[in-house]
Design a protein around this nucleic acid. Sequence first.
DNA 1: TGTATTTTATTTGTCGACAAGAAAAATCGC
DNA 2: GCGATTTTTCTTGTCGACAAATAAAATACA
Lengths: 234, 234
Amino acid sequence: MTDRTMAAPAERKRGEGVKLVYDILRDDIIDLVLPPGSPIDEIQLAERLSMSRTPIREALVRLASEGLVTTLPNRSTVVSNIDFLNLHTFFDAITLMYRVTTRLAAEFHVPADLDVIRARQAAFAGAVEAHDALAMIATNRDFHAAIAEAGRNPYYTGLFCRLLDEGRRILRLYYSSFEDRLPQRYVAEHEEMIAAIAARDVEGADRLAKAHADQIVQQIQQLIARDRRQTLAL
Amino acid sequence: MTDRTMAAPAERKRGEGVKLVYDILRDDIIDLVLPPGSPIDEIQLAERLSMSRTPIREALVRLASEGLVTTLPNRSTVVSNIDFLNLHTFFDAITLMYRVTTRLAAEFHVPADLDVIRARQAAFAGAVEAHDALAMIATNRDFHAAIAEAGRNPYYTGLFCRLLDEGRRILRLYYSSFEDRLPQRYVAEHEEMIAAIAARDVEGADRLAKAHADQIVQQIQQLIARDRRQTLAL
DNA sequence: TGTATTTTATTTGTCGACAAGAAAAATCGC
DNA sequence: GCGATTTTTCTTGTCGACAAATAAAATACA
């Protein structure tokens, strides 16, 4: 559990309970504080958060709808596993979403959107500069989510954010310290995407987004391949 | 409320409560028995279904995650409105999903998938033959959902089904009786799509799916445009 | 009569308790 | 000692109650 759990019993108004639990659990799942497959005990959680089980259950329903936890009747809720056997579906979907959201941002953004996107990029660049892999993973997600929001199609934004979060979980499996070497070229690629979006170059944005997605997919595949080779070497 | 509400107090095992409420409400929302904007009263619902509010609240959380209801803290949950001002986002997303799911079905289907798809098409054709608009709307959704399942990408299937259900709600606004004249050409288009999928003609499937989506979009636009003209004539 | 304020009624969010179902531990039989 | 069965413990699903927040109704005032 995050430190936030200890702070949770602080003042909260009626009606804020479910969201508080949801936020805490969601962060913990994505940051692998709660690793895939781990059971979620309602009673323990209720004790730790000093609240009854009801809002916790409601938060779990919401998390289940987002695929972050898996529930079956009369059984413990568990943190959803990452489906490594079917990563191609994830790669396919996230590549498509990178493309359509970036296209739409080039087409529909307003000036304030660019401010947000640029602020997110600055945070991402800062994380890369600081060799902070965990912050990089989080700020990368936020950067692309801002692009999706600028594209103004809630269906795509919803799916894309879900996929980005799943990507965070996958990456978090492999980046577990502050010492990892982070690819600087992602910062440059983000800048190019921002320029294409600002210039309303829809096709350019699409092309850059696809190339960027391909890089990410390749990175994940290499991380997994490296992992598998270690296993076979045993 | 549907007739099913009256039958609901029949035997149900522990753990089946939430799903029962979810299914009932979902059907009622999509069939516009509960029209957009209408409030959902937990207490009334609990009385009618002879159960406590807890499972009802959990079902509502799930429905909220799927966009079918809208909740705010300390306020009545309401059935989500259809966002007519931003239908272009819906059209964009559903067209893309028609295409990618049909492509993937052409690529990844197995023989049993075709059996399901064909059965769904037979049901659809039967509904068209019977001039049963409501059944047509429902079976059309099921037909395309089966194609999406055959494509085996859960991310697309999830989004597509959500969009298809939203399409059902929109169409249900305009088809309210059994007397409407139904376009026979949709049956033929479905058959062509099945043939392309069976032949594993990915590009053909894509082309047919896009043309089909364009037809649906156009139909909805005409329905909406027709409605507006009547208003101005007063 | 219309508006502002107060009171009352209703609904929602959460609580703690009960009991069903599942998991773990203990016991039994070979 | 191992597997099957029984008992105990634990967790989940739901219950009904309480109280906060909201909505509706009533009252007061100009």
